[in-house]
Design a protein around this nucleic acid. Structure first.
Length: 256
DNA sequence: ATGACAATCAGAGATTGA
């Protein structure tokens, strides 16, 4: 089974690229972020015709997550629990083909310090609480998404250039590390322990052509999921297409 | 560098992103 996470940076702007990617790489489950569209406007019929069921947690203008799947999915959580005042669409979770999967769009947190960074850390705390309830399920669990965290200096082209960024702060990294300590496995780092692997290249300053990227899209696996992990990687070529998202799809394969 | 680049909402330029 192939499970991918892909921050598409706008559904309407990216639909042709999304359809091409689905047709070529054929993920069984695709967790999307930054769909930037209201739930009722998501192109469900088009994706159904492409062979995918859709669960959508949209929002006008920004944010928004979705789960596409070849098999029908049952929604298990819409929105991250823990703050009734948080109206951002950043979390969607479902049961699909015998696994539990979440599509996560963690807050960026810039500029830091400030209220947006506080929101990011608070959101991370809420994620840790909810993730703990999923960790000991008797089925594989995959938390896939844009975590907006560069876990280690080896996960960015230049730690110096981005030293002040919210993605790099010790508090952000500690929050991510807490998930690993709790028992979650960083799938890409597990398969590629030493590589410099990017999932994001900024639109600015020729970042793509100079390979100035970060690794911020992650798939975290529960122990039962990690036991089935076969391979992991990034569909880097997708980032080089015309009108591409600034993120590339990141994926795992699990043995069934 | 109050930057660059891109998407969205709106219908110009601000906001958001990373």
């Amino acid at each position: 089974m192939r499970i991918a996470t892909y921050n598409i940076n706008g559904t309407n702007a990216r639909l042709p690229r999304l359809l091409e990617w689905l047709a070529e790489y054929k993920p069984d489950i695709a967790c999307l972020q930054e769909i930037k569209i209201q739930t009722e406007n998501f192109p469900v019929e088009t994706l159904n015709a492409a062979g995918y069921h859709c669960l959508v947690h949209g929002q006008k203008g920004f944010n928004g997550v979705a789960i596409l799947s070849r098999e029908p999915a049952t929604e298990t959580q819409r929105g991250l629990p823990g703050d009734d005042l948080d109206d951002h669409s950043r979390y969607l979770e479902a049961e699909v083909a015998g696994v539990r999967v979440a599509s996560i769009y963690l807050p960026n947190g810039n500029p830091q310090p400030g209220p947006k960074f506080d929101y990011k850390l608070a959101w991370f705390d809420r994620l840790a609480v909810h993730a703990a309830t999923l960790l000991d399920r008797a089925q594989p669990v995959i938390l896939a998404g844009d975590y907006n965290v560069v876990p280690h200096d080896d996960d960015i082209w230049s730690p110096i250039a981005l030293a002040g960024d919210a993605l790099m702060q010790p508090e952000s990294r500690a929050a991510y590390r807490r998930l690993l300590w709790a028992g979650w496995t960083d799938a890409v780092r597990s398969i590629h322990p030493n590589g410099r692997i990017w999932t994001f290249w900024d639109y600015q300053a020729g970042a793509w052509h100079q390979d100035h990227g970060f690794r911020i899209d992650h798939l975290l696996l529960s122990p039962l999921a990690a036991d089935r992990l076969v391979d992991a990687g990034v569909d880097k070529a997708v980032r080089g297409e015309e009108k591409a998202s600034d993120h590339a799809p990141t994926w795992i394969t699990l043995r069934s």
